[in-house]
Structures are given as C-alpha cells and as structure tokens.
Amino acid sequence: MTARTGYVAEAAATQLAATLAARFPGLPDHEIQAVVRAQVADLRETGWRISAPVSVLADRPRARKTGQA
C-alpha cells in the first residue's frame, strides 16, 4: 500500500492479499494489490474503521532513538 493506513489496516490488507494469492495463484501481484487497495478504499468510503484494541498494539516494539543521554 502506498499511503499509510495504520498498522491494523495494513495487517488486514496484507492478509487479504495473501488470501487472494493463495486462492488465485495465477493472478499477478500488481492485480492483487489493486484489488486490495480498492477494498480498503471501499471500506473507508462507507465509513468502516479498521482498528483493534490498544492492548493489541501495546506489545509492538517501539523505535528507540540513539545518541541521546
């Protein structure tokens, strides 16, 4: 995905792309990505929010800044 949609939406889009690739093995990657982008756009346009509880994201490693005391 080119535009940042959030960790949960990106994970959902990645899962959708993997499912499409498994079910339609001959489908080119660029077509799969086009379908996924369209699905995410359709969901957003109709008001869906792709989210998860904060506790699910709490275990994500945080980027650490180096060189600071």
Rank of each mutant, 00 (worst) to 15 (best):
49 R>Q: 13
14 T>G: 15
55 S>I: 12
69 A>I: 09
5 T>E: 10
19 T>Q: 07
63 A>V: 11
48 W>K: 11
66 T>Q: 12
24 F>L: 15
65 K>H: 07
28 P>C: 00
7 Y>L: 15
27 L>E: 09
57 L>T: 10
61 P>D: 10
46 T>Q: 14
28 P>T: 09
25 P>V: 00
10 E>L: 05
16 L>S: 05
4 R>T: 12
33 Q>E: 15
2 T>E: 15
54 V>N: 07
25 P>T: 07
43 L>W: 02
51 S>K: 03
4 R>D: 15
40 V>L: 10
55 S>E: 15
45 E>C: 01
33 Q>I: 05
51 S>L: 10
32 I>D: 01
63 A>F: 11
62 R>Y: 00
14 T>S: 15
59 D>K: 12
13 A>Y: 02
26 G>M: 11
27 L>P: 02
14 T>Y: 09
15 Q>K: 02
34 A>C: 06
61 P>M: 03
26 G>K: 14
23 R>M: 09
9 A>F: 06
42 D>V: 08
64 R>Y: 01
1 M>F: 08
64 R>S: 10
43 L>S: 01
19 T>W: 07
43 L>A: 14
65 K>P: 01
14 T>L: 12
23 R>T: 04
11 A>S: 07
59 D>F: 04
59 D>G: 11
37 R>I: 03
21 A>E: 00
16 L>E: 08
29 D>E: 12
14 T>Q: 14
63 A>C: 06
68 Q>K: 07
58 A>N: 11
27 L>N: 03
19 T>I: 13
61 P>I: 00
24 F>H: 15
16 L>P: 07
58 A>I: 05
67 G>C: 06
57 L>A: 12
61 P>W: 06
5 T>S: 10
58 A>G: 00
57 L>N: 02
40 V>F: 06
47 G>D: 09
64 R>H: 08
46 T>Y: 08
30 H>M: 05
36 V>R: 01
22 A>L: 11
47 G>T: 00
13 A>C: 01
44 R>G: 02
47 G>C: 00
17 A>M: 00
19 T>A: 14
41 A>H: 04
55 S>K: 07
68 Q>N: 11
1 M>I: 08
29 D>L: 07
17 A>D: 01
33 Q>N: 07
3 A>Q: 13
59 D>R: 14
58 A>C: 04
45 E>F: 10
42 D>T: 06
21 A>S: 10
36 V>G: 04
6 G>V: 06
29 D>S: 14
59 D>C: 09
67 G>A: 05
33 Q>D: 13
34 A>V: 03
36 V>F: 04
16 L>R: 08
58 A>H: 07
28 P>G: 04
63 A>T: 13
69 A>D: 07
2 T>M: 05
7 Y>N: 10
22 A>C: 06
1 M>H: 01
27 L>W: 00
45 E>P: 00
7 Y>P: 00
45 E>K: 02
25 P>S: 09
54 V>G: 05
